[in-house]
Lab assay of single mutants.
Amino acid sequence: MDGTRTSLDIEEYSDTEVQKNQVLTLEEWQDKWVNGKTAFHQEQGHQLLKKHLDTFLKGKSGLRVFFPLCGKAVEMKWFADRGHSVVGVEISELGIQEFFTEQNLSYSEEPITEIPGTKVFKSSSGNISLYCCSIFDLPRTNIGKFDMIWDRGALVAINPGDRKCYADTMFSLLGKKFQYLLCVLSYDPTKHPGPPFYVPHAEIERLFGKICNIRCLEKVDAFEERHKSWGIDCLFEKLYLLTEK
């Protein structure tokens, strides 16, 4: 054995408090879109979701699917093309516009009456609605409950000090017999300040354990050449399924 860690023996890093005071403002996230600093976007979609999607959907149609901090995630069109209703929230209007443009979807925009100064973008087909606002303002819009949440790049982007508020927001959107698919990253948080932030299993239990059954479905090596600039040499991604207790 050469000592290389595999996707099945990932350790939890003990120094989980080192990132707790890290803060990125909404304006800084918007600047990332304006300046093209969106390496977190996956042009081909998320491979773990693609692998498990049909198993999760079980042939159902007409589900309501929520994408927190959606950006221009191509997976939104995957669900819409399968007959589901997609709702996303994203602070960057540019990111939302790029989604519709890159997916060749016509759309309209209208003000969100409950949140002055914000807009919702709706596909002409009517099954994709993307709200351009802070996720913490979203419950004011009465958008209803969801059958499924796809959380990739959301919890790991939320400032650590806001995670409890974020989890409570997610709980307010969950319908009966929900499936909450959650991706988190595992790396040494003493070497990279984030975002994306390190979210250990214990944190998921703390945030969601009282209401959800929590199961880790898969762990994969997600390290890429660009991650060397973070000062790390190891990065794993974990896919969790959260269901109603």
Rank of each mutant, 00 (worst) to 15 (best):
D162V: 09
D188K: 08
F40A: 04
L174W: 11
H41R: 06
P196V: 04
D2R: 10
Q179C: 00
N35K: 06
L174H: 00
D188L: 04
A39D: 05
T25M: 10
N159Q: 02
T6H: 03
I112W: 06
V120G: 02
C183R: 04
L24V: 10
I128F: 03
I211A: 15
I143V: 15
K210L: 14
G59S: 03
G3A: 10
G231I: 12
K228L: 13
F67L: 05
H84N: 05
K119R: 07
N142K: 03
Q44D: 13
E43T: 03
F40G: 06
L155V: 05
K122I: 10
V120T: 10
W230S: 09
P139S: 05
L235M: 15
P160M: 03
V65I: 09
K122Q: 10
Y240A: 00
Y240V: 02
K210E: 04
P160S: 05
Y187G: 07
E110P: 01
D9N: 08
G88R: 00
S106T: 15
A167D: 00
S123G: 10
I211N: 15
E237D: 04
Q22S: 15
P160K: 07
T190G: 10
L53K: 04
Q47F: 10
W29G: 05
D9R: 05
S108K: 06
F208W: 13
T38F: 12
L242N: 00
H84S: 03
D15C: 07
S186F: 13
G231Y: 03
K145V: 09
C133H: 01
S106Q: 10
Q44L: 07
K77E: 03
D221K: 07
L173D: 02
R82F: 05
D151V: 00
P193E: 03
L8P: 08
A154W: 00
A222V: 15
L207A: 05
D2T: 11
P111G: 11
F56V: 11
W29R: 04
D15H: 15
K20W: 11
L217T: 04
T243Q: 10
H192A: 07
R226P: 07
T243D: 15
K164W: 13
F56L: 11
V156R: 03
K176F: 08
A154Q: 01
I91P: 04
R226V: 05
A154Y: 02
D233K: 04
V34K: 03
E28C: 14
T190F: 15
L63E: 05
E102L: 10
A202R: 15
M170I: 07
E237R: 06
E17T: 06
F146M: 03
K72C: 03
R140Y: 13
W230H: 03
C183M: 13
K72R: 06
G88Y: 04
G45Q: 07
S92K: 05
Y13R: 07
T25A: 02
L69W: 02
L63S: 09
H46Q: 06
T118P: 09
E75Y: 04
T113G: 11
I135T: 02
L185K: 04
S123Y: 05
F100E: 00
E27S: 14
R226W: 12
V87T: 12
H227T: 15
Q22Y: 07
E17S: 09
K219Y: 08
Q103K: 06
S125M: 15
L63N: 06
K50I: 04
H52D: 12
E43L: 10
E205I: 06
A222E: 06
V86W: 00
A202P: 14
K51W: 07
F208K: 06
W33G: 06
V156P: 06
V199A: 03
E90K: 05
Q19T: 10
L130K: 01
S92E: 02
R215V: 05
D188G: 05
I211T: 01
L235G: 09
L49Q: 09
G88W: 01
F136D: 06
T243P: 01
D151E: 02
D137L: 06
Y107K: 02
Q47G: 09
A80W: 01
G161F: 08
Y240I: 12
H201G: 12
L239A: 04
E11S: 10
K77M: 11
S85M: 11
M76K: 01
S108C: 05
K77S: 07
P160R: 04
I135R: 00
K32M: 10
A80Y: 04
H192T: 05
H46C: 02
E244T: 11
K51A: 10
P68T: 01
F236A: 15
Y180D: 00
R215M: 07
G36E: 13
Y131C: 04
K32C: 06
L105A: 03
K51M: 04
K60R: 13
K177R: 11
K72H: 06
L217I: 09
A80T: 07
T243W: 05
I211Y: 01
S106A: 14
E93G: 06
E90V: 07
R152M: 07
D54W: 07
E93S: 13
N142E: 08
A80F: 04
T190W: 13
I143Q: 04
V156H: 04
W150N: 00
K228N: 04
M170L: 13
K238R: 12
P193S: 12
K32L: 10
V120F: 10
C216G: 09
S92Y: 06
L185Q: 11
F236V: 15
D31K: 11
G161A: 12
V220A: 05
D81S: 11
F146E: 00
K72E: 05
R215S: 09
S106L: 09
R140M: 03
W78Q: 03
G45T: 12
I211L: 08
K122E: 03
Y107R: 04
L138K: 01
I211F: 15
H84T: 05
S134C: 06
G83K: 02
V184K: 07
Y107T: 01
F171S: 06
G62Y: 09
N127L: 11
T4P: 13
T38N: 08
H201P: 15
E98T: 15
D188A: 06
L49A: 04
V89M: 05
E12M: 11
Q179V: 14
K191D: 13
T190Y: 10
K32A: 13
T169Y: 14
W230A: 14
A73Y: 04
R152W: 04
F208L: 02
G194C: 07
V74M: 06
G62K: 11
V220Q: 14
S7P: 05
L94T: 12
D188W: 04
F100M: 11
F66S: 01
G161D: 12
K177P: 15
K58E: 14
W78I: 02
K37S: 11
P200C: 14
L239E: 02
T101L: 06
P68F: 00
D15P: 12
K37P: 12
T169R: 09
E75T: 03
F171H: 15
L185V: 12
L182R: 00
P68Q: 00
D54G: 09
V65F: 04
Q19S: 06
D15A: 10
I214V: 10
L94N: 14
G175D: 14
G144R: 06
Q44P: 08
K228V: 14
